[in-house]
Design a binder for these strands. Structure first.
Ligand SMILES: O=c1ccn([C@H]2C[C@H](O)[C@@H](COP(=O)(O)OP(=O)(O)OP(=O)(O)O)O2)c(=O)[nH]1
Ligand SMILES: [Mg+2]
Length: 1038
DNA sequence: GAACAGCACGA
DNA sequence: TCGTGC
DNA sequence: GTTC
């Protein structure tokens, strides 16, 4: 794809704008075709060296959202700090090197820092304010120098940079979309329409009417000609030089940017100044940049040949592996040294519930993803079965006569209308559904077994029919069995249908002939218990209660054992012997949370408001002691044990409440439920909203319960890995419980104490106690089965979720190479191919510094397109995280000059591709000319050999939604969900655009799209929802 | 027993 | 619509 | 799994 064809791609959009009547699908089709052309010319990426300076504290151990040290972020915690506008220096000297200072500076300029005449009301932040809460670490100096073509004339630069913006308008921007919702009127969420865009609403207040907006079209660049030249220019010749801070400062005041003077703010604002509250009434606190004292590390500005140091730094970049791998990253079972064997106490008499059967192994996303659709279980079921049916059709190729099991079964039953009788028909009268694990391909063994069933008189079910089926025979896991059945849960299988292993059939086949007729049924039943496939269904199908409970119990136990053992891949063995499994749960690393905010969160001197009951008072004494040495002497006998949690919780709340000076007062009514209550007025319950109370990130002694965390984390991940939505929510719950545990200041002593925590219920509390007592979770079944392993592996691929992962497993794939070879006929989507190709890169987290370095390049290019652009990194970066799973870039633009950033994103993407920064696209904006659009792709540091691919997202939003977007994009995800939940309960709906007042039906379903009530600033939204303001770094939940 | 956030993009 | 991801 |  040497000849990348951006121009054509964008021309596409232009032409669409010009021809609005073109049907959407047509458009989409063409869009898809153009996707291919995004690949950049690899020849452009040569001859560069790169250096990034890392700082010492960069030692990365990350816990959840590990952050840069508190000193660096101290300002972030102060509410009203005004910005410290060290400005960027963009200088075009005759030698044409660009010195770039930390992005923060750029931010200051991109924001209308100098937009004094604010005609548009609150639209523009006042001078001295900035959107973004930049955290510290502005030291990552980057040097990029060309190793060839060092000369780069001014004209060349100009032609590149200006060529785009100043290009003649060859095309008018397309039609405008509908009306403004400037008044905060109805704002419709994006909806899909056959024809119209997905984003029917118009977003910005300013009409960049078609005649203006130089950036709303792709002028000359549409032909390959003009564009390519420009692009070559960029990538071949430019000399970007990122100088160390100090040096860069020298050029600060003289900043000019594309001929326009960029307001240079002072840079030496004192810390004190920074901490002062905003003075301007219209200032958006959320825009405040609580500066973090920039770290003045020695930056390495090396021009020319890479030094050893450079090499080493490069190395570090490419080698960097975070200790907090991306959620989806898997730790594959065996080699995991952090694994610690847990005791499997098979003799334990403790009842084992369904949750015991879990797969300990690698773990996919721990980020509880959105609920799987599926409203009613029944409708889901239907969908499922139709789906598997569909697959049946499409699948099966290669091999002699490739067939799905269903097809094969069907063919059998047809062929066998006149069965060859030789054996006794021991299966007479039974309707058997068999699952060998692979719904797509009937293996030899599967066929053999099916034939046996049929030849023994059994009625083999091609598809599962809950009414007529008498037995389900399976050689595979619960997951795959359910999948084959088209069900989501075991419980959906009718009670009268036993689920048994092939062994059951095998025994009947071999011995059945000797049984007297009248005993056969009873034998079958007993055997069904003995060979139950799933422990939780051992007694399914038992009509006659002649089985003693003792028997059942034993069977149950045994079944579980077997279950734990090798629930192996396929059916190549009809005697699944119980193979001991080297059970080991990988403990999630010694999470040593070096939380940076210790000092900030020091407890109040007087824990006021403690309940004045004797219980509270006396427990407080104990509590204080515990808080000190985190070792509760409170024995399990302590009659007050159960009161502790509440008191502690209160303390904790107070504690965090005092943590910042600008804390809003949280009155009692703020303590509400996190659950249910879609109604607008469910007041006063006992639990709070997660978003209301900052999580205390106590520096040390955080959780002395990591042990528990580890096990529970495993549990959570296991369930995440499983199919079915009940597992999804289970995992969700575990996560909450874990969170509660993390927050809890002292060691859990008792069941009651554990259960007292929000999110910890009966079952989890039991598990906790078990862990405490036995050191492990006996109830963990180590089914480190092939399918969970494989599925987890596959889920590590970007674009692969559990559904696809299991599909592929069922298709016979086990390794990534299997996928590459298309084994089993698996097809990868465009995105999945990329995800597979860069598996390791994508699953890695990058050091904050790298995110910053990449972003600086991007920002430069973006500001060339439109110097008034607001463009900043959000996500974990904004929250101050030390490493970032991706780069989340927010783009917007003030409209006070009558312009918008319409059309900027596509151009930016084009230029970033040209500059070698963007490398692959994962998802393109639906309508790139929409002010509101999203992009998803991969990027890397250009011209740096060995630089890893990094995920990058762009979110472009209309100026008026900047507050909502900021809030959304800053996260973290659980914080967002919590806040949205609270909003919902209050009769609002919070989304990435803003806060809407909505009407909902009794079940929380929205009637309409609601009335926009806040969107311009984060603060408004916090206020309306009565959530205490929190700086980005405080918005970490879970 | 229902809810556990709400939405964008690809197929 | 479903799956996936933010 | 947990909450209401
Ligand atoms: O399910 C989600 C995922 C993300 N977000 C928001 C919050 C999050 O902060 C932001 C960016 O998403 P991303 O996946 O990049 O998470 P992050 O917080 O930036 O962490 P990471 O370092 O893994 O990128 O989008 C949500 O609202 N819901
Ligand atoms: Mg991110």
């Amino acid at each position: 794809m040497a000849d990348f064809d951006y121009a054509a791609y964008y021309q596409e959009f232009d032409s669409r704008m010009a021809a609005p009547d073109e049907p959407m699908d047509e458009f989409l089709k063409r869009k898809a075709e153009h996707r291919q052309s995004f690949t950049k010319d690899p020849s452009l990426a040569e001859g560069w060296s790169f250096v990034s300076s890392y700082t010492t504290h960069e030692a990365i151990h990350a816990v959840n959202d590990s952050k840069v040290p508190s000193e660096k972020l101290s300002a972030m915690d102060s509410l009203g700090s005004s910005l410290d506008p060290e400005e960027i220096s963009v200088r075009k000297s005759p030698e044409l090197s660009l010195s770039v200072l930390p992005p923060r500076n750029v931010a200051d300029q991109s924001i209308p820092v100098q937009a004094p005449d604010n005609q548009l009301g609150g639209n523009t932040p006042p001078p001295g304010s900035s959107f973004v809460d930049h955290s510290a670490q502005e030291h990552a100096a980057v040097t990029i120098s060309p190793q060839r073509s060092p000369s780069f004339t001014r004209d060349e630069i100009e032609s590149f940079t200006l060529g785009i913006i100043d290009a003649p308008l060859s095309k008018k921007s397309g039609k405008r979309k509908t009306t403004d919702d400037a008044d905060g009127a109805m704002a419709l969420p994006r909806k899909r329409h056959a024809h119209n865009t997905r984003n029917p609403q118009n977003q910005d207040t300013v009409d960049t009417s078609a005649t203006r907006s130089p950036i709303s079209s792709f002028p000359d660049i549409k032909g390959k000609r003009g564009q390519k030249e420009d692009l070559m220019l960029v990538t071949k010749e430019p000399q970007l030089q990122f100088l160390p801070l100090d040096e860069a400062k020298l050029t600060r005041a003289t900043t000019k940017h594309k001929g326009r003077r960029i307001a240079a703010q002072h840079s030496m604002k004192s810390e004190k100044d920074k901490l002062e509250p905003p003075t301007s009434p219209i200032e958006d606190p959320s825009l405040v940049l609580p500066d973090a004292s920039p770290k003045k590390s020695k930056a390495l500005a090396v021009v020319g040949q890479p030094s050893e140091l450079q090499m080493e730094l490069q190395e570090r970049i490419s080698k960097h592996t975070s200790s907090k791998p991306r959620d989806k990253v898997l730790k594959l079972g065996k080699g995991d040294s952090s694994s610690k064997p847990l005791r499997t106490d098979a003799n334990s008499s403790i009842a084992i519930d369904e949750s015991d059967i879990i797969h300990v192994s690698s773990s996919p996303s721990s980020r509880a993803t959105s609920p799987e659709r599926a409203k009613a279980g029944s409708s889901k079921r239907v969908i499922q079965s139709t789906k598997s049916h569909r697959q049946v059709k499409g699948k099966g190729k290669e091999k002699p006569k490739p067939m799905t099991p269903a097809e094969f079964a069907r063919s059998l039953t047809i062929a066998n209308t006149n069965p060859k009788e030789s054996k006794k028909r021991v299966l007479e009268g039974l309707s058997i559904f068999y699952s060998g694990g692979d719904m797509n391909y009937a293996s030899k063994v599967t066929r053999k077994k099916m034939e046996l069933v049929v030849s023994s008189g059994g009625n083999l079910m091609a598809t599962f029919d809950p009414v007529t089926t008498t037995h389900i025979v399976t050689d595979t896991s619960q997951e795959l069995t359910l999948r084959a059945l088209g069900l989501k849960r075991l419980k959906q299988i009718p009670e009268n249908i036993p689920t048994v292993t092939w062994k059951w059939v095998a025994v009947i086949l071999s011995h059945g002939a000797q049984w007297p007729e009248e005993e056969i049924e009873g034998k079958r039943e007993k055997l069904a218990i003995q060979h139950a496939a799933f422990p939780d269904r051992v007694d399914a199908g038992i009509k006659t209660q002649k089985i003693t409970s003792m028997e059942t119990l034993q069977a149950r136990k045994k079944a579980r054992l077997q279950n734990a053992a090798n629930r192996s891949t396929n059916n190549d063995d009809n005697l699944p012997g119980p193979s001991a499994h080297p059970g080991s749960t990988s403990s999630a690393g010694n999470v040593e949370s070096s939380r940076p905010f210790g000092p900030l969160l020091s407890p109040p001197t007087s824990p006021a408001n403690l309940p004045k009951t004797t219980a509270a008072t006396s427990s407080k004494v104990t509590l204080d002691a515990q808080l000190d040495d985190h070792r509760s002497e409170g024995s399990s006998q302590d009659p007050l044990a159960e009161y502790y949690p509440a008191v502690r919780a209160q303390l904790e709340r107070k504690e965090s409440g005092w943590s910042t000076s600008a804390e809003l007062d949280v009155d009692e009514s703020d303590i509400e439920s996190e659950q249910g209550a879609p109604r607008a007025s469910r007041s006063l319950q006992r639990q709070g909203w997660a978003c209301d109370n900052k999580e205390s990130t106590r520096t040390k002694s955080c959780p002395n319960q990591d042990i528990i965390d580890k096990v529970l984390t495993e549990l959570m991940k296991l369930h995440e890995a499983k199919v079915g939505q009940e597992d999804h929510w289970r995992a969700f719950s575990y996560r909450k419980a874990i969170g509660a545990l993390k927050q809890y200041p002292s060691r859990i002593q008792s069941f009651t104490e554990a259960k007292g925590l929000t999110g910890v219920g009966e079952k989890t509390a039991r598990k906790i106690m078990e862990i405490l007592q036995t050191g492990g979770l006996r109830r963990i079944k180590y089914e480190d089965t092939a399918e969970v392993k494989a599925a987890s592996l596959f889920r590590g691929i970007y674009g692969v979720g559990k559904t696809v992962a299991y599909q592929w497993y069922a298709a016979g794939c086990r390794t990534l190479d299997d996928l590459r070879e298309g084994k089993g006929g698996v097809k990868l989507s465009h995105v999945q191919k990329i995800g597979l190709q860069f598996y390791n890169d994508i699953n890695d987290r990058m050091p904050r510094e790298e995110a910053k370095a990449i972003f600086e390049l991007i920002k430069l290019i973006a500001l060339e397109l439109d110097s008034k652009l607001f463009i900043e990194i959000m996500g974990s970066y904004r929250r101050g995280s030390k490493d970032c799973g991706d780069i989340d870039v927010l783009i917007t633009r003030p409209t006070d000059d009558g312009h918008t950033h319409k059309g900027v994103l596509p151009k930016l993407l084009r230029d970033l591709h040209a500059a070698g920064i963007l490398t692959e696209d994962l998802a393109l904006p639906e309508d790139p000319h929409d002010l509101e659009s999203t992009y998803r792709g991969l990027c890397h540091l250009p011209h740096v050999p060995g630089s890893k691919r990094r995920r990058i997202d762009f979110l472009s939003v209309p100026w008026k939604y900047r507050g909502g977007a900021l809030l959304y994009y800053t996260g973290n995800d659980f914080f967002n969900r919590s806040m949205r939940l609270k909003a919902k309960s209050m009769g609002y709906s919070l989304n990435q655009r803003g806060l809407y007042k909505v009407c909902r039906d009794s079940r929380g379903e929205k009637f309409d799209d609601g009335l926009l009530v806040a969107s311009e600033t984060e603060r408004e939204i916090f206020d309306i929802l009565n959530v205490p303001w929190q700086t980005p770094s405080e918005r970490i939940r879970g």
